[in-house]
Design a protein around this nucleic acid. Structure first.
Length: 697
DNA sequence: AGCACGCCGACT
DNA sequence: GTCGGCGTGCTC
């Protein structure tokens, strides 16, 4: 009897060397994209049929192929466009197709058998049938002139049959109403009978976006996709999208892989945000993949930001993206006035005072007026390091090349890299001296000092709240603290990055960056871009209510008040900042003018990691594909040792993306081989990985 | 990555 | 004599 030979991609790590689809036998033809279970060695694993057409195999010609164990045919096959997206991702980020394909599906899908899956699918249909067809959708607000203009332009390009589907870079000030543009663009897609996918950088931002969409699209099915969902929720939401039953999918970077049979629009909110880059496994950029997916499916992609990434900005300048701007805030509200506080001129800085007198005075004034303020300090804990005044001992981590941070509230020293935590020693562990002192400042210390400073004056006590990873660890704590701010129960909110993103604080009229200078002189070439985006975003938290916007202010405490970055911030001039950064990037040969990849190596010893990278560089040199590619010498990572593992990295650069890709493709098999040899020679290479388009070098 | 196969030490 | 240590190598 003739049997079908079917190519199947399986879940197997890069490491395994199983990079191509495996062949199995099955009695009938199977459609490409079908979910199957197949034997692999002694185990049975999930796989996806990758061949579009199966070939007939003669009995004598069946080699020793094994049969497919089970077909989960209650699941409609994954579409060719989805498979092409996965294939591109695997190729571009240098991982196996099977690893990418299976890792972006809900984990639950790999476990269930066909009957269980059939039951889940049935339940979803029921749920959706049970949702009321049309509750009262809130009427959309009227559009500002610039919103209308932007939407008209998008509609015109989408409607033009001769034009390719556009990638739109929506450059809109904070408070200019980008979300409303997303809502309208999504409404258009829905009206065409299509699905819309909306990506946000952080899980924290999905609830408020979801409620905004739910309010507008009452009666429509909206689901979210992110790693914070329970396995069952994630499967349910994924299935609703895959089956075409949900109209809107909101999610974090992993949602870019959602299976959407009627996809008509992708929105990437805050497209510059580094969180879109996956930092392990296949290190993909969800923003870049969204753009690729848009081209693939011939649908528009909307990239929105007040501070676009320089990559996107450059592409827009080249005309590859359509750039649309919304410089005005809704209701004509003013952007906050930016005050720079010259810290070199402030008293008390040697005694560890975090807040300068003028900033304190401004805070008191806001409190007296019943307005809210927001203090941003990107360092949690009390102080980043403890020091002995006698012998100079500092609170280093025994396992990492990093300080352990002093957390005063629970009297601990904590390593933020490996998690190693100890009680704060009573005396210096080296010399026994009792005088050990916190150096530097974190959010806990800021909270303490602010409370003390505000208590000195009469009047009602100020209500201070702190939002950072420590204060919001407990389930629901973040939402309840945010709720307190929105409800007016807080006068001053102190926080890390967490508070600068997205949240729509209507009553905040003052935002202050307490100590942002570290971003000015970092060795990371993207640090200024990140700092500028962060400060613009933070400034955007102030004066969102047009009625109060006139008096809203952004304060920056700096030891470098003359720095051009702050000058650009002061005039809210992203374009000027972007141009100066692009000029620097161009002369330094950095992205977007060059394309980068990092080869990282982790080992027990520096020598092992370094010699692995040296050997790798030598191998690259022997390849003809390396001609237009520059391989730099290995260097330790910024934090060289984490949990007793030494981390080295080597930069690979080319002016041509294609050349870089060709080298990586030719190089990686040799690296697998090299690792095997090294392991035998007991140099104990633990891991290596390639990061294409790295965020930091 | 799993998982088995394989070839050397301390136990019923 | 075997139970099991984890080094080495394969998975259609």
């Amino acid at each position: 009897m003739p049997v079908q030979q079917v190519a199947v991609v399986v879940e197997a790590p890069q490491h395994s060397g199983l990079t191509t689809p495996l062949d199995y036998l099955f009695a009938q033809p199977l459609p490409g994209g079908a979910l199957v279970r197949v034997p692999l060695g002694t185990r049975e694993v999930a796989g996806i049929v990758w061949s579009d057409s199966a070939e007939l195999v003669e009995i004598g010609d069946q080699r020793r192929l094994k049969p497919i164990a089970a077909v989960l045919d209650s699941l409609p096959p994954l579409l060719p466009s989805w498979r092409r997206l996965v294939e591109f991702t695997a190729g571009y980020y240098q991982r196996s197709v099977g690893e990418v394909a299976l890792s972006v599906l809900p984990p639950e899908l790999r476990k269930l058998d066909d009957q269980q899956l059939r039951r889940r699918i049935g339940k979803i249909a029921q749920r959706i049938a049970a949702t009321p067809p049309d509750a009262d959708a809130s009427p959309p607000p009227s559009l500002s002139a610039q919103q209308q203009q932007v939407l008209d332009r998008i509609a015109a390009v989408v409607a033009d049959p001769s034009a390719v589907a556009p990638t739109v870079l929506l450059h809109g000030s904070t408070g200019s109403g980008k979300t409303e543009v997303y809502l309208r663009a999504a409404a258009d897609a829905l009206a065409r009978g299509q699905q819309a996918l909306v990506l946000v950088p952080e899980i924290n931002l999905t609830p408020q976006l979801e409620s905004r969409f739910a309010e507008r699209f009452a009666g429509r099915v909206i689901v979210s996709l992110h790693s914070g969902l329970t396995p069952a929720q994630r499967l349910r939401n994924w299935l609703a999208a895959h089956l075409g039953q949900s109209d809107l999918v909101l999610g974090t970077r992993l949602a870019v892989f959602a299976s959407l049979p009627r996809l008509g629009l992708i929105v990437v909110d805050e497209e510059h945000d580094p969180s879109y880059k996956q930092q392990e496994g296949a290190r993909y950029s969800a923003r870049d993949l969204a753009v690729y997916r848009g081209r693939l499916e011939k649908i528009p992609v909307l990239l929105g930001s007040a501070t676009p990434s320089l990559e996107s900005w450059q592409r827009a300048k080249e005309g590859r993206y359509l750039r649309l701007s919304m410089p005005e805030r809704i209701g004509g509200a003013a952007l906050p006035r930016v005050h720079l506080v010259d810290m070199t001129q402030q008293p008390g800085r040697r005694s560890g005072e975090i807040l300068s007198p003028p900033l304190l005075a401004a805070l008191r004034q806001r409190i007296a007026r019943g307005e809210q303020s927001l203090l941003f300090l990107n360092r949690r804990g009390y102080a980043p390091v403890l020091q002995c005044l006698e012998c100079g001992w500092q609170s280093g981590c025994p396992f990492c090349s990093a300080w352990r941070v002093f957390h005063k509230l629970d009297r601990t020293l904590r390593c933020h890299h490996c998690g190693f935590t100890e009680r704060v020693p009573r005396a210096c562990p080296d010399c026994g001296n009792l005088d050990i002192q916190p150096i530097g400042r974190g959010t806990e210390r800021l909270e303490e000092q602010l409370a003390a400073a505000l208590a000195e004056h009469d009047g009602p006590p100020a209500r201070i709240s702190r939002i950072d990873a420590d204060s919001t660890r407990a389930q629901g704590e973040l939402q309840s603290r945010l709720g307190a701010v929105h409800g007016g129960a807080v006068d001053v909110l102190i926080g890390t990055q967490m508070i600068t993103k997205g949240h729509d604080f209507r009553r905040v009229t003052l935002v202050a960056a307490v100590n942002p200078d570290s971003g000015l002189f970092s060795s990371d070439f993207r640090a200024p871009e990140r700092l500028f985006a962060l400060l613009m975003q933070a400034a955007g938290r102030a004066g969102r209510d047009a009625g109060q916007a006139g008096g809203s202010e952004m304060w920056v405490q700096t030891w470098h008040p003359g720095h051009p970055l702050y000058a650009a911030l002061r005039s809210h001039d992203f374009e000027a900042f972007a141009e100066s950064q692009l000029a620097e990037r161009k002369s330094a040969g950095l992205p977007p003018y060059a394309h980068l990849a990092l080869l990282r190596a982790d080992a027990r010893s520096v020598a092992a990691a370094e010699s692995f990278l040296h050997a790798a560089a030598e191998l690259a040199g022997e390849l003809p594909e390396a001609s237009a590619v520059l391989v730099y010498p290995p260097v330790p990572m910024a934090v060289a040792r984490v949990a007793n593992v030494e981390r080295m990295q080597m930069l690979v650069e080319s002016s041509s993306r294609a050349q870089l890709q060709r080298l990586l493709t030719a190089w990686l098999p040799a690296l697998h081989q090299l690792r095997r040899e090294r392991t035998r020679a007991d140099e104990r290479i633990l891991r290596w990985a390639v990061d294409v388009d790295p965020m930091a070098i």
